[in-house]
Design a protein around this nucleic acid. Structure first.
Lengths: 344, 344
DNA sequence: ATGTATCAGGAAAACGTTTACCTGAGAATG
DNA sequence: CATTCTCAGGTAAACGTTTTCCTGATACAT
């Protein structure tokens, strides 16, 4: 590694001057400045961020903890966060927690060792498992922004989609189409997902809408399936659901990925969507608009979420004593082809 | 930040001893060891990786450059790479190049500043654009492994799917089913993709298989579409293709994402897949097995690719003078529902 | 001409580790 | 008992920066 010393020697100046030229931190006469710049060029000198960080006692880096980097939804979110962070001059440090508290704890350790100044944190499910990890970060005075999954008990910045409202809107829309029997489907690796987190809120929204419409919520109509991936869960769950509640005319899958499995199952059962049965998703991942049929869903666009999270983070870094906020990001009903009035 | 000094003071020993206990680098008597460990515990001491890296002159971190973190295929690859790297004791530093040379160059600068010891590099397209960036890394004695997209002119480690063979297998399979008129579809943001990289090799494989079967390759049957995303490209391209070559009975989309758009277009045109027309993809992303109909494709599983890349990287780090290798990872034909003999 | 203010640039400390080297006490050997 | 060996633990240098403080020269005012 060529260090600042070699540059200084080559340019015939002190290392302090080199640093000043490179950081524009003090006036340096044009002639000397040029000599330094030339030396830098000639030696392909690249300053060591490690040394700079040590000296400045800051890293300009932010940890990003997501459950799975290859999840259809979270990869989009991660991408948006990366864009937002780099454009704000921070370096993202990604890690997948695999929604496992132990792995998550390891990730947190790792981030702390790396001296991140903040963490964008999508908690594992159930969220209660993540409480301790979040508190470890807070105890170390690291700024934390919780994303996607709320932990209401924690005094910390959060950016959460309005899942309740989304669920409500979805149900209201289906009810408005005339559906009387609506199935709810969810699943994935997070065995306890329906007990907490976004799924629970979406369901609560559905229940509210049904109640307002004078409909009864039949627990039999909600099926959660444990599976390697959400599509598989939706696929299997759909069979279970229709077996135990054949009267169902509309299915609200709690994620788009899940809905894709539902479409698949419907196709295999010879059911035409939306003629025989309506299907809705949640998230509006890119795939949703390419599914067959195109999926009606509730959009939860990653870009505004990422932006809000980074804004909150940066604000907190600048004013560590500012109040904690919970920002609710609105969802938006996107009507496509997979929903229609019930048959008959 | 609580530093090693506070721990030393608290334990009543020198900082050297603390370091030794923490790194198990020299025998320390049990009683003192315990005192140190207690002090560490009490102060929640976490060593600064920054300082350690500076002193040790190494970072144990590896840059990972992919075109898009939210691409269906690359996110899977990134996930596999992350897993492989962390389990080998390295920290991944992800960045999306957006397949743009300028952005890519910035990413490379950034990685070099961070002192990465190696880079897993998926070049932008056309790959020739990335040559300079790769050479910059090599000049700085940073280990590089090219993944997914070969740059044959460079003397560097590479891990590439056997795209030619994959293309060949795909075409041979379709020809074996009896198809006489096979369309080729590709697209995305990388306007020059068909001119270089994996796509070109896949096409070459197709041409070889066709030639062996005594079929002529009609350039009209290859449509490349510029679009924001691959699915959209497949969707639009399909219309173009069938318009200019209505005799086509099978379509080989050069990626699964593209194939999804093709399925979509076929659906809208009232064509039943595979009865009226067969569709194949490439990659075997998770979605492929959930599409309607399930997609026949060539699997290019990310895990073995990631593993091979990391092995190559680590080997090169340990023996910097070892020969460069290009590892060809085999693809595997996965027959599902989207292909059948031609109608009639 | 003398004193003072300005300011470009250098010297050196500091950031938090690891590690080469040193020291002194006890064990072992004659 | 004297001498050497062993080795646990301490001291301090080093990693590559940034930044505080200092110096000496020049400009300016008196």
């Amino acid at each position: 590694m060529t260090s600042i010393k070699s540059v200084a020697k080559r340019a015939g100046v002190s290392i302090a001057t080199v640093s000043r030229v490179l950081n524009d931190t003090k006036y340096v006469s044009p002639s000397i400045r040029e000599k330094v710049l030339n030396a830098v060029e000639e030696l392909n000198y690249i300053p060591s961020i490690t040394a700079r960080n040590l000296r400045r006692q800051q890293t300009q880096s932010i940890g990003v903890l997501v459950p799975h980097l290859n999840d259809l939804y979270f990869s989009g979110l991660a991408f948006a966060i990366e864009k937002e962070l780099t454009s704000s001059g921070y370096s993202p440090l990604f890690a997948s927690t695999e929604s496992d508290v132990l792995k998550e704890s390891l990730c947190v350790d790792n981030l702390m060792q790396h001296g991140v100044e903040g963490v964008i944190f999508v908690p594992s499910l159930p969220v209660s498992d993540s409480v301790e990890n979040v508190q470890r970060l807070l105890a170390a005075e690291i700024a934390v922004v919780l994303v996607d999954r709320a932990i209401p008990t924690l005094r910390v910045n959060q950016v959460i989609s309005n899942n309740f409202q989304g669920g409500y809107d979805a149900a209201q829309y289906l009810i408005g189409l005339g559906h009387k029997h609506i199935g709810l489907l969810d699943g994935g690796t997070d065995a306890l997902l329906p007990k907490s987190g976004p799924g629970r809120d979406r369901i609560a929204g559905v229940q509210q809408a049904m109640a307002e419409a004078g409909m009864e919520f039949n627990p039999k109509n909600f099926v959660f399936t444990d599976d390697q991936n959400q599509s598989g869960a939706g696929y299997k769950g759909m069979f279970t659901l229709l077996h135990q509640s054949p009267e169902i005319t509309a299915v609200f899958a709690l994620t788009d990925a899940c809905a894709v499995g539902v479409l698949r199952a419907a196709y295999e059962m010879g059911l035409s969507v939306p003629r025989d049965i309506s299907v809705m998703g949640f998230d509006d991942i890119p795939l949703a608009s390419h599914a067959i049929p195109r999926l009606t869903t509730l959009a939860q666009p990653p870009q505004p979420i990422a932006q809000a999270a980074i804004n909150l983070l940066i604000k907190h870094l600048n004013e560590p004593n500012s109040e904690f906020q919970t920002i609710n990001v609105g969802t938006r009903l996107v009507v496509r082809e997979s929903t229609a009035p019930p048959p008959g």
